[in-house]
Design a protein around this nucleic acid. Structure first.
Length: 169
DNA sequence: GCCAACGTTGGC
DNA sequence: GCCAACGTTGGC
């Protein structure tokens, strides 16, 4: 089909969330098992959200500032970039008075739960994998909360036993 | 346009 | 709680 022939290949991303704020289990329990990935206030991450991320892309759900930190599950993009509503909400912690609704500064996507890994795959395990030698999240000083993952990195991570061999939950 | 000061992120 | 690394701000 023409549409499928012209579709771009599926891409992969890593998105960070502090589990105390919103964990993979929170996502699994959310209405429709989806959530709005909002509140991102970094231009590089914004560009990914606005320009690059598409419906169907794969997401590694990463728990940051956790004990331990690491990959907690898989999600999928269910809605591509749209203006982040929290930027226009005076009562929201991420309100940005400088963002013009006619030309929004900040963007969000929606992601849906796919599966959790048990146990979480800690950073220390990722660091030991040769296939992940140049993975962004493992680089010193890498603070981007939305970052690209290569297909090879995605495959290497998806073969780990923490996924339990389940295709889906 | 430089760059010091500041605030934030996030592993440890 | 520490602190390195980074992004942003604002004075000049």
């Amino acid at each position: 089909m023409r549409r499928e022939m012209t579709a771009r290949p599926r891409r992969y991303w890593l998105m960070k969330s502090e589990p105390d704020v919103f964990s993979i289990d929170d996502l699994a329990r959310a209405p429709g098992r989806t959530t709005c990935w909002d509140g991102v206030r970094n231009y590089q991450a914004r560009n990914f959200l606005r320009d690059e991320i598409r419906v169907g892309d794969g997401v590694l759900y990463y728990h940051s500032s956790a004990e331990p930190s690491g990959i907690a599950g898989e999600a999928a993009v269910v809605r591509a970039g749209y203006p982040d509503p929290t930027a226009f909400d005076r009562n929201d912690a991420h309100y940005d008075p400088k963002s013009d609704p006619g030309k929004p500064t900040w963007y969000a996507v929606d992601v849906g739960f796919v599966r959790a890994c048990r146990p979480l795959i800690p950073l220390s395990s990722l660091r030991r994998m040769a296939a992940l030698r140049s993975m962004l999240v493992l680089k010193r000083g890498m603070r981007l909360s939305v970052q690209p993952v290569t297909a090879a990195e995605w495959r290497a991570i998806m073969t780990l036993p923490e996924w339990g061999g389940r295709a889906e939950e």
